[in-house]
Amino acid sequence: MIRLSAARLQATDPRRLLLWMPLVSSLVGLLLLWNFGLTVPVYMAVLLLLVGFGGCALFGPARLQGPLLVAAPQVYSLLLLLAWGVALYVLPGHPASGMALLAASLHLPTIYVFLFLQWPPALAVRLSSLTLAVFLGITLPHTWITRAEFGPYEGPGLPLTLLFAHGTLLAVLHSFSQVRDQLAQEQERTRQMHELAHRDPLTGLRNRRALEDDLLGAAAGCLLAVIDIDGLKQDQRYPGPRGGRPAPHALRRGVRAAGRRKWCPGLPHQRRRIRPPDAGRRRRAGDRAARLRAGRRPS
């Protein structure tokens, strides 16, 4: 059960896992606002939009889940910017504004992660920096107005916190995304080298190295024997001991001899060819018998 859950988690798109964070946080925010009687229409609308978008992206029709997943960073950025601007300029003294500012600043890194999962590192860092710059641009007038005040969301502390904390986070995400891309390229290169080592590029067939790997990974007790018999077709024309065919007798004797020598067919230097013994003498004897039957005397 644990292995099955781990396999399903590994196969899940990480962006879908990120969708759960705004959804759950919005539901908790709605419950808190309702419980404390702080049902501000603007904040309630933003939270309901977050819940609706996350629910449609996770549980909506399959044809809508893909486009909504791609548009998630932009939608979340607009909704967080709306809540950020309302908390700073429209309802600065409302008890719910502090919670809105805190939630926006905490969920802004989710947008960064979305962008780095969705785009290449260079483009993702530009989009994330642009998002952070927009938040800073909206914050600067409020910082100038409250420059003489001291608080978590007043004065120069708020833009400096956004700049240094989120800037450091962007640098770390950029480094991790570059390492992730390098690992993906290395894995692809390793896969290609493995394919070249185990498959003939001309015919597309698996070679001996692939066969040896398959045998090593097979269950205990499996054995593959490849036997090459020289002169089998010619020796079938002449009688063997007691009137039988010589090839089966030679094959049986050769296999027994190989077993006594502990012959391993997987090692090139231990290969042996099973050759029927005295094939030339039996051929000459057969020719002599044929001439006698034809009324000719042997020379």
Rank of each mutant, 00 (worst) to 15 (best):
M1P: 06
S5N: 08
S5C: 08
A7H: 07
L9G: 05
L9I: 10
A11Y: 01
T12N: 05
D13I: 10
D13K: 12
L19P: 03
L23W: 02
S25T: 10
L27W: 05
V28P: 04
L30D: 02
T39R: 15
V40R: 15
P41V: 09
V42L: 15
M44A: 09
V46W: 00
L48M: 11
L48G: 11
F53L: 09
G55Q: 10
C56Y: 14
C56W: 15
L58I: 05
G60R: 07
G60V: 04
P61A: 13
R63V: 07
L64H: 12
L64E: 06
G66L: 15
G66H: 15
P67A: 05
L68W: 04
A72V: 00
V75Y: 00
L80A: 03
L81W: 03
L81C: 06
A83D: 00
W84S: 01
G85D: 00
G85K: 08
A87D: 02
L91W: 07
G93C: 06
H94A: 11
P95Q: 07
P95D: 04
G98M: 11
L102S: 09
L102M: 10
A103T: 04
L106N: 11
L106A: 12
Y112G: 08
L115C: 05
L117I: 02
P120N: 15
A124L: 06
R126V: 08
L130P: 01
L136D: 06
I138W: 06
H142T: 04
W144Q: 10
W144A: 14
E149Y: 10
G151W: 06
Y153V: 10
G155W: 00
G155C: 03
P156T: 02
P156A: 03
G157Y: 15
L158T: 03
L163M: 06
L163S: 01
G167E: 03
L170N: 00
L170C: 07
A171G: 12
V172C: 08
Q178V: 15
R180E: 02
Q182K: 14
L183M: 11
A184Q: 10
A184W: 02
A184E: 06
Q185E: 11
Q185I: 07
Q187M: 14
T190I: 14
D200I: 02
T203N: 04
T203D: 03
L205V: 15
R206L: 14
A210M: 14
D214V: 03
L216Q: 14
L216H: 13
L216F: 07
G217W: 04
A220F: 06
L224T: 04
V226T: 10
V226G: 02
I227P: 00
I229D: 02
L232R: 13
L232Q: 09
K233S: 08
K233Q: 05
Q234T: 13
Y238G: 03
G240A: 07
G240K: 08
G240N: 05
R242T: 07
G244P: 06
P248K: 12
H249P: 04
L251W: 05
R252Q: 09
R252K: 12
R253Q: 13
G254V: 05
G254W: 00
A257Y: 03
C264I: 13
G266E: 02
L267V: 14
H269Y: 12
R275N: 07
R275W: 08
P276Q: 06
P276E: 03
R282P: 04
R282Q: 09
R282F: 01
D287I: 11
R288T: 10
A289N: 12
A290F: 07
R291F: 06
L292Q: 11
G295C: 02
